[in-house]
């Protein structure tokens, strides 16, 4: 049986269709989840897609965290469900406190869209286990607020606890730890491109694995991340229908 993976669609999401497409390529049955509903329709994992949820008014991700769907996603995550936030989805997760840190405006103060290279710090997570070895992965970034920030103590703790999931690296695979490194597209502290929560079931990253899923589009490295998620989800309990009671 194919595993059902949900993509939450907020008003203003614009890579929701790309995420659905990537999940389908990865062998999942993609399910579109509307932001006004707390019914997660029995999915085994959830993707929060890129875009500008609710127009990103106030602050990226700041309004989306209060949606009925996000309340359900928080409960799903608390119960151990797999959640992957990409770009704006990462911003929503950070705003909701489901992953540590914050995403600030890019150091250049400009939107940046380009191919970047990232490398996994962990190969034993539900989001990375199919990558196989620590190697550079090519995929695009496209964001105005992707500069990863946390205070020094938090950063140290993240490193210590293995919660740093991806870092930006240069063409030779060296981490772009310096915010001013040309391989670091947004000035992220310690070159951090993606992080996990302490329990290891919720992850967020700024680059777009869901756009790098076919060689025709320049890279299919992102498919390794999406397939890792789908494969990991296969053995997991699905979102409980009981949450429907809380739906509007």
């Amino acid at each position: 049986m194919t595993v059902r993976v949900g993509v939450v669609v907020f008003p203003g999401s614009n890579r929701d269709r790309d995420a659905l497409h990537a999940l389908e390529l990865a062998g999942a049955e993609p399910v579109s989840l509307w932001h006004e509903s707390a019914d997660l329709q029995g999915v085994a994992a959830i993707v929060l897609p890129g875009g500008f949820a609710y127009g990103d008014y106030l602050r990226a991700g700041a309004i989306a965290r209060f949606s009925p769907a996000m309340r359900a996603v928080s409960a799903f995550a608390a119960a151990g469900g797999l959640v992957l936030g990409i770009c704006n989805g990462f911003q929503v997760l950070a705003e909701a406190g489901l992953v540590p840190g914050a995403l600030l405006r890019n150091r250049s103060l400009r939107f940046v869209c380009r191919q970047v290279t990232i490398a996994p710090e962990r190969l034993d997570t539900p989001f990375t286990h199919l990558i196989g070895e620590r190697r550079p992965l090519r995929m695009p970034v496209a964001h105005g607020e992707g500069c990863y920030y946390a205070d020094e103590a938090t950063l140290d703790a993240l490193e210590r606890d293995g919660q740093v999931l991806f870092r930006y690296v240069d063409d030779d695979g060296r981490p772009a730890l310096d915010p001013d490194d040309p391989a670091n597209p947004n000035g992220s502290l310690r070159g951090i491109a993606g992080v996990m929560n302490a329990a290891g079931n919720v992850a967020g990253l700024m680059p777009h694995p869901e756009t790098a899923v076919e060689p025709l589009l320049g890279s299919d490295d992102g498919l390794l991340i999406i397939r890792s998620l789908v494969e990991s989800a296969a053995g997991r309990p699905v979102a409980g229908r009981k949450l429907e009671a809380g739906a509007r």
Binding site: R17, C113, R114, P140, T211, L217
Partner: peptide, 14 residues
């Protein structure tokens, strides 16, 4: 200029 534009949303840009 063009790095300030999202050029690949939609996953169709070859």
């Amino acid at each position: 200029v063009y790095e300030q534009y999202d050029s690949n949303v939609g996953a169709n840009t070859v």
